[in-house]
């Protein structure tokens, strides 16, 4: 086997495990909806979904470790590495949340396809090697990236719950999520949005300290900074609107999805929009 691609089989295996988790999530919801009487979700089936998710996380972690060992640096530089590390962190944090908060498990039917957007994307990408820029030898990079991953993961969970709220609004899907209430989903989703605001703020602070060390300025309105500031502002505005005006649940769900879309674009769109998204890369 070509050593250059040593990490790929592990990553494909991880994606396969995520695919199984996705199919099981759909099957679980379908079984709830197919029943003539109101039934609660099957905890055994949920356990299988969690098992598949954890397997996927472990396999992608292995893929990351192999690549890290091969290149001598972490997955911080190019888009392939960014996608790979996000597949790991989104899967890891969603697994923990899925395990600890049973009330949101129905969101897997929204969350897993969203994770699979990244999974499909990475399958079409060339796993080119990257060079670690000198300005990345900084401990604040770890804090910045770590907080960023938690931020996007919580935003994904909120988007998953918002997706379930909107699915419940479509008559043909209502019975699949009949065991939940909009109010409970809405409250849970906005709690995750509040956590999103905390970790987004921490990500921006850590990034600013790193930028000051690395490039001699803490803020410079480059593509990523502009987009991430708008994301932070939209989360703040969304929470402000939700708490102040008590907007309808479905409108709130749309707001959450819009914020997630903006966050997603910041992560995966800005590097396309500007090659010098973070100037240390060049």
């Amino acid at each position: 086997m070509n050593s250059v691609f040593a990490e790929l089989p592990w990553m494909w295996a991880g994606l396969f495990a995520y695919a199984i988790a996705t199919l099981l999530a759909f099957r679980n919801v379908w079984q709830v909806g197919a029943s003539d009487v109101a039934v609660l979700p099957n905890r055994q089936a949920e356990g299988n979904i969690l098992l598949a998710l954890v397997c996927g996380v472990l396999l992608i972690a292995l893929a990351l470790a192999v690549r890290w060992d091969r290149l001598g640096h972490g997955p911080f530089v190019n888009l392939f590495e960014l996608l790979m590390s996000q597949l790991f962190s989104l899967g890891l944090i969603y697994s923990i949340v899925y395990w600890r908060v049973p009330d949101l498990r129905a969101s897997a039917v929204v969350v897993m396809p969203l994770i699979w957007v990244l999974g499909t994307w990475i399958l079409f990408m060339d796993p080119v090697d990257s060079r670690f820029p000198p300005t990345y030898h900084n401990n604040w990079l770890w804090a910045h990236v770590g907080f960023g991953k938690i931020f996007l993961s919580f935003s994904l969970v909120a988007a998953g719950l918002a997706g379930v709220i909107l699915l419940r609004a479509i008559p043909c899907f209502t019975r699949y999520f009949a065991h939940m209430s909009d109010a409970a989903l809405d409250q849970l989703a906005w709690r995750f949005m509040m956590l999103t605001l905390v970790f987004d703020s921490l990500m921006l602070i850590a990034g600013a300290v790193w930028a000051q060390d690395a490039w001699g300025r803490y803020w410079s309105w480059d593509a990523l900074e502009t987009s991430s500031f708008m994301t932070w502002l939209s989360i703040g505005a969304g929470i402000h609107v939700r708490l102040t005006y008590n907007i309808p649940t479905r409108l709130g769900a749309l707001v959450i999805l819009a914020i997630f879309f903006l966050a997603f674009t910041t992560y995966f769109g800005a590097p396309y929009y500007s090659e010098a998204a973070h100037k240390g890369v060049i």
Binding site: A223, T226, L233, S234
Partner: peptide, 22 residues
């Protein structure tokens, strides 16, 4: 006013967009 807060946020977002790349 909380409405003024929202207006301010919208204007700030527009300002941020205009400030892209200084």
């Amino acid at each position: 006013s909380t409405r003024l807060t929202l207006f301010g946020m919208v204007f700030l977002a527009i300002g941020a967009g205009l400030s892209y790349d200084n």
